[in-house]
């Protein structure tokens, strides 16, 4: 038994070490955001909150943050508007070829982001030459690209909650004379609401943290937060960028914990 628990202890230590490897850099960046001095040195000479104020005063970060929030909200709404009906069609109205359709709708998740970003950029420019309608480097263009990022998440999570909910109450409503719309709004919607909330959260997170798809599509004055971070990091590394990163860590962490309240992530994955 002694040898066994020793082995068990070593195993636990290994698992903790691997988690630490992934999480520690994130804790470090949060720590650095409070360092008093601009030039990094460990341990720090003192602590300050002033980098957060400085970051919020920098136009790139302030505008990038607002842009990411706006694009994220629009992409989330669009992906729900398109994804919930699509999930309903796939799970409730079996039609031939629906597995192919499902895979097609999930494909934005499998196409490499850098490839999709490049392709959409070239496509937008060609569309503009043909129709004189500009999409590259516009808000609309970013929202379209981000809706594609978000759609697979919405589809997966809403499909999952439709599959786990049985259809008996829906059938009961229909046999009692409710029409398709009434059944959806009074019966199906309340059942899948947690799935939809999780879908909205994940859609927002996927959009908010996206870097590769936006890379080609941002323009002067229309930069998202991750792109602003990328541009800054190519030149300097200081507590200001750590403060910006910390804000993003807390926003996404909060969104993740909120979604866990509605859909137990331990059961979904």
């Amino acid at each position: 038994m002694g040898a066994l628990s020793l082995g068990r202890l070593a195993y636990l230590a290994l698992v903790v070490a691997i988690f630490a490897f992934v999480i520690a850099p994130l804790l470090m960046i949060v720590w650095v955001s409070f360092f008093a001095e601009k030039i990094l040195s460990f341990p720090p000479t003192g602590y300050t909150l002033s980098w957060y104020a400085r970051a919020s005063e920098m136009a790139d970060f302030a505008n990038g943050f607002l842009m990411s929030v706006k694009v994220g909200l629009c992409a989330t709404l669009a992906s729900l508007a398109l994804g919930v009906p699509a999930a309903l069609a796939i799970e409730r109205f079996p039609f031939p070829g629906r597995e192919t359709i499902r895979q097609t709708l999930l494909s934005p998740m499998y196409v490499p982001a850098i490839v999709a970003g490049a392709a959409v950029y070239i496509y937008f420019i060609e569309l503009e030459i043909l129709t004189n309608f500009q999409l590259a480097a516009t808000f609309t263009g970013l929202v379209i690209a981000h809706t594609l990022v978000a759609l697979p998440w919405t589809l997966r999570l809403v499909c999952a909650s439709l599959v786990s909910a049985n259809t008996i109450s829906e059938e009961a409503a229909r046999s009692l004379g409710a029409n398709a719309l009434q059944t959806f709004f009074y019966v199906t919607l309340p059942i899948i609401r947690p799935g939809m909330i999780a879908a909205a959260m994940f859609s927002f997170i996927a959009s908010f943290s996206d870097l590769e798809k936006s890379l080609f599509l941002v323009g002067p004055g229309k930069t998202t937060l991750p792109i602003a971070i990328l541009n800054y990091l190519e030149w300097s590394l200081d507590p200001t960028i750590a403060a910006v990163a910390t804000v993003q860590i807390f926003i996404i962490g909060a969104a993740l914990i909120v979604s866990d309240r509605f859909v137990k992530l331990g059961k979904v994955f």
Binding site: V22, I23, P25, L26, M28, I29, I205, A206, F208, S209, D210, L211, E212, L225, P226, I227, I229, L230, L233, L237, I241, A242, A245, Q248, I249, I252, G253, L256, L265, F269
Partner: peptide, 15 residues
């Protein structure tokens, strides 16, 4: 496990 995945590559690289 999911948190770092969802943070995006800009923040993770900075870290």
């Amino acid at each position: 496990t999911m948190l770092p995945l969802l943070l995006g590559n800009a923040v993770r690289s900075a870290a």
